Simulated scan of single mutants.
Amino acid sequence: MRRIEAITIITREAESQGALLVGNIGYPSRELYAVGDRPNNFYMLGSMGLASSIGLGLALALPKRRVIAIDGDGSVLMNLGSLATIADQANENYLLVILDNGCYGSTGSQPTCTSRRSDLAAVASGAGVSEVKVATTASEVQSCMKGKGVLVIKVEIGNAEVGVIPLSPEEIMGKFMAISAPPSPSS
C-alpha cells in the first residue's frame, strides 16, 4: 500500500469520527493536505519527531475530543520516549498511527532501522502501550482506526506527487486553534 492511500483512509476515518488530526513533517503532511485539507488538521512543519507528542498533548488537554497523530518511522525513532509516555497516560481518545516505510522519505529515502531489524510495534508493546496493532492492507487500516494506542501501518517507499502546503505556520495554527479550542464559558 502506498502512504498516500493509507493517509486517505486515515483522513476519511478521522473526519467520520470528528477527530483532530496531527500530520507528520514533510511529505506526509503535504499528502495529508492534498487528500483532504480541513480545519481539524494540524500540519507539522520542521519539527521532526514531535507529532506523537503534540497529539498526546492535545488528547490530554481535550479529553472529550478524538485525536489521531500520523507519524513516520524515522520520526518515532527520533523520539522513542513518546511511546513510554503514551503508554503511561493510556488515553482512550488518542491513536498514534506510524506510517512505516523503512526510510526517511522526505530527505532522500535513506533507510531507517525498521528496514532491517527494528520493529516499532514490538517497541511500543515493550514500552507498555496496551493496544498495538499492525496493518498492511486498506481493510486492516480501516478496521483499526477506531482503536487507541499505536497502529503501525507498513507502507511502500515513495512520495506522492503533491505540492507544498500553501499556508504559513501562523495560518495553520490559527485555523487549527479555532476549531480545536474548547468552548469558552459564557458570562
Rank of each mutant, 00 (worst) to 15 (best):
S106T: 01
V123D: 04
M145E: 07
I25N: 09
I172S: 14
N41I: 01
L20E: 08
L80V: 10
Q17V: 08
A19Y: 10
T8P: 04
L60G: 00
E92N: 12
P111N: 04
G149C: 13
Y33S: 12
S180M: 05
S168M: 10
L62R: 03
K154A: 01
E31G: 04
L45M: 11
Y43M: 08
L83K: 12
M78L: 11
N40E: 05
I86D: 07
G163T: 05
Y94C: 07
A124H: 13
A178P: 08
N91S: 13
L120D: 02
P63K: 00
L20C: 07
Q17G: 07
K148F: 02
P111R: 10
S139R: 12
S109R: 06
S180P: 14
V150N: 09
N24G: 04
Y43Q: 06
E140P: 07
M44P: 14
G49I: 06
E131A: 15
A138E: 15
T114G: 08
M173L: 14
G147M: 08
I4R: 11
S168C: 12
L62K: 01
A122H: 06
N101H: 00
T107G: 12
P166M: 00
I4G: 04
A59R: 00
L20H: 03
E171N: 03
M44C: 15
I179N: 00
P166A: 02
V134F: 01
Y27R: 02
S52A: 14
I10Y: 04
V76T: 13
L151Y: 13
A6Q: 01
F42M: 02
S109T: 04
M78P: 12
I86P: 12
L56T: 08
D119P: 02
A160N: 10
P166T: 07
K148W: 05
V97W: 11
I9M: 12
G158Y: 03
D100C: 03
N79Q: 15
P169T: 05
G163C: 02
K154I: 03
L151Q: 13
T85I: 12
A121C: 10
V97I: 13
